[in-house]
Design a protein around this nucleic acid. Sequence first.
DNA 1: CCGGCGACTGTACTTTGGTTCAATGGATTC
DNA 2: GAATCCATTGAACCAAAGTACAGTCGCCGG
Lengths: 205, 205
Amino acid sequence: MQHWIIDREASPLPTWREAMPAAQLLGRGQLGVVRFAGPGVIWSRLHAGEPVANALDGVDRSGGQPVVLLSDVPEEAQVLEALALGVAGCCNSRAAPEVLRQVAVVVSNGGLWVGQSLLRQLVGATSRRLGQLPRDTENDDWRLLLSEREVQVARLVAGGASNKEIADRLAITERTVKAHLTAIFEKLAVRDRLQLSLRVNGVRI
Amino acid sequence: MQHWIIDREASPLPTWREAMPAAQLLGRGQLGVVRFAGPGVIWSRLHAGEPVANALDGVDRSGGQPVVLLSDVPEEAQVLEALALGVAGCCNSRAAPEVLRQVAVVVSNGGLWVGQSLLRQLVGATSRRLGQLPRDTENDDWRLLLSEREVQVARLVAGGASNKEIADRLAITERTVKAHLTAIFEKLAVRDRLQLSLRVNGVRI
DNA sequence: CCGGCGACTGTACTTTGGTTCAATGGATTC
DNA sequence: GAATCCATTGAACCAAAGTACAGTCGCCGG
């Protein structure tokens, strides 16, 4: 896996070299000509005081490689802004090498990476918000009628996935996905995946 | 570091043994007499369909060890509920050994662990709440992008109707319904009726 | 008057979804 | 050990969804 590190002044920290010895270092000025190809991670450093957009400016993201923000002064608002811009993660630019390696693993597998403190805040805010809502349990009946595997399939369908996508995700054949779906339709008395989606997502028909 | 695994029927999965060969396995019945001492992680399994509170019931947490929920059927609401109860993390009970080891490292250092899909939702929910940058506008925008007739069709599709049903309801041919749908998919940049339904019903994708 | 847009429809086609046969292996239960 | 449930897959098939290409009609603004 390739690593590309973008830094304003091309001043890499030693920890980066340790975590990614084979990384290619790029100054922001060189970005015009660089095209990222193949699997890898794009790391972009944000110096203290800089606006978040600077880190993404001029970065060719058509290759699909995840971008990780290396922030000198990480803070929650900055991280959220960066995530909204499509960044796969943010971490302290002075994070330890093993942390950087872990971040790379997570984001290169399609995951997001946020720091522990931000995570706590996100969780706190959300659970507080949920606590105020009346938790309707009657909507959960569908899960009780299905097997574990069927619940997994139902969730993916409800999220808009095609049979092929579900098959890939669960590492089974499309045929098996269809078999599960037929069973689900029967058990929940719905006629197709769209009505299943409505049921799972709690939309009254 | 010590690992304690609590399971209702003391039926450990082989992956657990692989991740934590020296773990001590406990049935729920034995909890009355067990006191956790020294550094370590308490893993508690939640079987499918069980209320979250079961996993914490009778667990002596005075020792300060983090508790991780091993859920057979992990889902967002459950994870949030568990976190509100003071759990340090939740993961799929069938997670790979290396994942379990990683979870152990994180939580034993005071971190929280949540799955990638939940993290995405938390980030999405929070950034939507803070700045209305990403989907907030998009979500109600669908109507503005469509013609009057297309809105009617979109609504019926979102409610689970088939093309034939829509045609009958609007007194047009099935062919015309398809034409409207093709236009709708194009305008809203979705690929099929299910994703359209999610968009119209305001479900986060 | 013309160009563009929206509503509407036809024929023909490809793709995806879903069902009907059928079968295997594991786990659990009686 | 038989019975049952679950997960898995194959081949074949039908139906629904969706696309491509093409065309008509009415309305509206320049």
